[in-house]
Structure formats: C-alpha cells, structure tokens
Amino acid sequence: MQKLCGFLACNYILYVPLLSWLAAQICKTIIDLFLTGKLDLERMFGAGGMPSAHSALVCSMTIATARKFGVSSPFFAFAFILAAIVMYDAMGVRRAAGEQAKVLNRIVDDWMNEEDDEENPLRENGKRLKEKVGHTPFEVLSGALLGILMAMIFPVT
C-alpha cells in the first residue's frame, strides 16, 4: 500500500485526474441529494449526471499533461484527442442510450399496466434500464471546467 501511495504522490498526471473524478462524483452526489432530498450512493459511482466525472477526468489529465510537458508535446496531443473523444461520446452515444432507455422503460411500464401477467419476461424483478448514462452539453462543460480547475490548483511535480 505504501508503494501505491508513493506511486500516486509522484505521478502528477495520474493523481490529478483521479482527484478530479472523485471531486466530480462527490459534487454529483451532493447535487442529487439537494434535488431529490435523499442520499443515493449509486450517484457516487454511477455514470451520468451533473457534473460529468468523465469530462473532469480527461480535461484535468489534458491540462496536467500540458503543464508538465507543454502543448507541443505528443503526450498533450494524445491527451487532447482522448478528451475530445470522451466528451463527444458522453454527449452523443451515451446520452442517446439514456434517452432510449427512458422510452423503453415507459413502453414496458405502459404494456405491463395493460397486461395482468405477473410473469412478464420484460420486467424481471422490477428491473429498469438505466436512464442516466450520458450527459447534456452543460453537464460536460461543468465537468470540463472542474477538471481544468483541479489541474490548475495542484502544483506540477
């Protein structure tokens, strides 16, 4: 464990993104608590919501890489491209999957209300598709700004 802590402490480009992810997840959990009035610990580890932890992680990694190696380094180029892909995916494919899950859940709910069959295979044990898997552009932007802020707060080591 001591070696792991030493490894994290000396690896700026690793610990800053991990702390940014953690900060985003904590913020997401607190925001959800205020909006719903109940503590949902799934928000601490689940995808989707405000702010985007994925965006916070990749943006902080990109800024940390720029601060350590400069914007003309191949490391920065790789981090920048990865961040762009992750944020685009969060707003595109993953958000579309969440919207589709909402529609499918509604269809199954409506159909089950019409059918009195208790052994309906579409809803085993009351399971629903996860609807919070992607992000709105505002959630991605908020995560990106949090990641940038986190990378700027910690000194380059």
Results as ranks from 00 to 15, higher is better:
G92M: 03
H135W: 13
V93I: 07
A77G: 00
V140I: 14
L4G: 01
M1D: 11
R43L: 15
L39T: 08
G98I: 02
R43Q: 15
L104N: 03
G70D: 03
L57N: 14
G126H: 02
A64N: 05
Y88W: 05
N105R: 10
K68A: 01
G46C: 14
A64H: 02
V16N: 08
A96R: 04
E119W: 08
M152E: 13
L122R: 05
V58L: 08
M150R: 07
E131T: 14
E139A: 12
A53I: 09
T29A: 10
I63E: 04
M152H: 14
T157E: 04
L8W: 01
L18D: 07
T29Q: 09
M91W: 08
G48F: 15
A84P: 05
M91G: 00
I31C: 09
A23R: 06
F34K: 13
L14G: 00
K132R: 15
G6T: 09
V93L: 03
P74R: 02
A101T: 08
E115V: 09
V156Y: 05
G126D: 03
H135C: 06
E42V: 15
L82S: 09
I63K: 05
E139S: 11
P74Y: 06
D110L: 14
A101C: 10
G126R: 01
Y88P: 02
G48E: 13
T157H: 07
A83I: 06
P137G: 09
W111G: 01
A47G: 12
F34E: 09
Y15A: 06
Q100K: 07
Y12M: 00
P155S: 03
A96P: 00
P155K: 04
F80P: 00
